[in-house]
Design a protein around this nucleic acid. Structure first.
Lengths: 219, 219, 219, 219
DNA sequence: TATGAATGAGTGTTCATTCAT
DNA sequence: TATGAATGAACACTCATTCAT
């Protein structure tokens, strides 16, 4: 992102290949994709790919690292825009939704392919993903410190649980077979926002969901 | 010899192959597994597998169908044991945990491989999974009808969100690289139980988490 | 044909398998046919076939031997019915046509599969086929001895050439893709009859083609 | 390097593979031949074959098309060399013999394998073969128009019958088990030439067989 | 750097044949 | 004799990767 000095990161072809890979992987899955397809989509020769990536696995890893970098940066930018700790929780979720909506192929790859390969779970350490979770965990932690959020769950566990929900909701909304639910994707994520916030926070008036009168109907 | 001794679902070899497949898939992933490995593990000839399954995909699908059937049945049994609607939510979660703990290989395959293959997400309708979600959704719905749970989220969305969490927590606890967290797996799931219950229910005293004084000790 | 004492030749199942094989081979070719298909068609178990035949090749060989036996016997019967040496040539050809018409599957197998397998041309001596050719050759030889037929070609060569024509005409008429020519199959064979007879014999008035006046109409 | 150097019909490897295939198919038959054998014979890698041919069937089809093209062209060249219509018939036969003699492997493949595969008889239209027959038929037709040949058989039927004879004679002479007859192959074909010519033509003095005194006894 | 023809190891699947019953 | 489940050798084809240009 910054230097683009290291060998060929940031080069035109490097980016084109990665972009092509996102598309091809999203369409066919990692194992269903051929390196030659990616080459064709990127409009480079097959062999050229091996000038920029060690092997097919490396394309997926790089794709993931590069994009997680961007996702995390975006999330951190968004988090700076508000001071409200609870609102920050909402920001995390909406940011994920926003990313998934803008770039379905990318969401698809991260959601589906990431989990798959044994390589990823065993050999590849996946520090970027840890960093992403840490960012969310810090938001939770802040709430806990301010006595706004429950402290009986570790922030890491919550962060992971939230990611699990978002991940699944993305599958649910973005990749539902008939695509029928795509229209209410935003609404579903908003529902999830409140589900999570409520699960986490105390019942301070300020953390109440938008329509307090609804809550008055509670028994 | 008798009825379902040959070429049947209940056949000895059918079961052995499926059991072997769970193990081999869990270890190597679907694409990393060779049919001959499964045959060897099941102690049958390669060709024998094709007497019981159409192809490699069919092994995975059958494995999934057979086990989901068992999982759903177990869950429904467990749900009958309590009348308390909120407790039923807890039962859903603990049941999942229980299954994952007892059969890590199976949990691994369901959690990791299910999501992967294009076949599964696009061609394979996966009615069993829908049935599983429906069972959870019905529990939520019951809570909503009794005015115990929030009605501003659809039961289906919640069921899916819960599944996402459980799925991710399983990866988190069962397959964490160092396996360091395995000991507190139960504890983590219990934390998730309360997170979910709290996110769903109204703050009635009776629905309060078991030890309210704990909350006073926080921070 | 006579004894049916030898082990199992002539047994019900032996015949059923052979009959089934003719049908299955005709439909799918030798290599395209599965032993299990033949078993099914013959309504016996796969393993039963190996009680009557050494292997798949042996089915084809037996099929050929048995049927050639019948074909040759029929031909010899037919030849006895006439004294006229030239008419005997016609009988050979019409007999072939008759067989092909009555039993297209058999004709198909003899015509197509016989030629194919290296096994047949190299290892399998094919004495029956030699006997069939010999029968025809003897007819030619007789004509030559009576000074009716040209003597500048060996009877064996002529027999083989005639068989080649008949074989090809069978393919032409019986298995022509659209099957369009099936109706004039008889006519085509009659044309061939005269072509052959004329090629062989001296132009005695009695061997002239049926309608000499037709020739006058030629330009 | 230049135009048709790579992945083209005229490419070095394309030709080598086809040449190798002729040899391997001739030796083992289509079904008895392994793609890897062809690759080895052509001195290319197994995979290379699939850069030039769609599959194993395609090798056989291509082999046939390419060579029929050459055979037909050669035949047409030869036919131009004479004006005599009857001599043209002889040219057709001698051309076939010549080809079979020069390239026994090719003759073997065309003669034996062509007939075999269901693919060839049913799916593969085989326009080249039709073109070959048509060329012969046109020669016959010309004779008929000039009132030299009998008109009571269609040129197509005759062409096919001639092909059948030549095909069978090739098997007879080129592939006879002991190979004993190879020496008189030429003689046998010459005998066939006269058999055919005589079967077709009228008794013009110029078309008389070698021994005129015999012919004087005719009619 | 860039190319893309060439490579060849690797594997799902078939099916003739066997053999315990 | 008869069965048909079990066997396992065999093979066409794919595709990630390389390397001469």
């Amino acid at each position: 992102m910054t230097k683009n000095s290291v060998k060929n990161k940031g080069s035109d072809k490097y980016d084109r290949i990665l972009k092509a890979a996102v598309k091809v992987f999203a369409e066919n899955g990692f194992h269903g994709s051929k390196v030659s397809q990616i080459a064709k989509e990127a409009d480079v020769a097959d062999g050229t790919i091996y000038l920029y990536f060690k092997n097919k696995d490396d394309i997926l890893i790089s794709l993931f690292e590069e994009n997680m970098d961007w996702i995390i940066n975006t999330l951190e930018e968004d988090l700076k825009k508000t001071e409200d700790p609870v609102e920050k929780i909402r920001v995390c979720i909406r940011n994920f939704y926003s990313m998934a909506k803008k770039n379905r192929d990318l969401a698809s790859v991260i959601t589906i392919e990431l989990r798959q390969s044994t390589k990823f779970m065993k050999e590849y350490d996946n520090k970027q993903f840890a960093r992403y979770l840490k960012t969310i965990a810090r938001v939770i932690e802040e709430c806990q410190k301010l006595n706004i959020a429950r402290t009986d769950i570790s922030p890491e566990t919550i962060a992971r649980a939230i990611f699990g929900m978002l991940d699944e909701m993305t599958l649910f909304t973005v990749f539902s077979p008939g695509g029928q639910r795509k229209q209410n994707m935003k609404q579903i994520f908003e529902e999830i926002v409140e589900f999570i916030v409520r699960g986490l926070t105390y019942k301070d008036p300020e953390n109440m969901p938008p329509k307090p009168e609804q809550e008055n109907t509670e028994e």
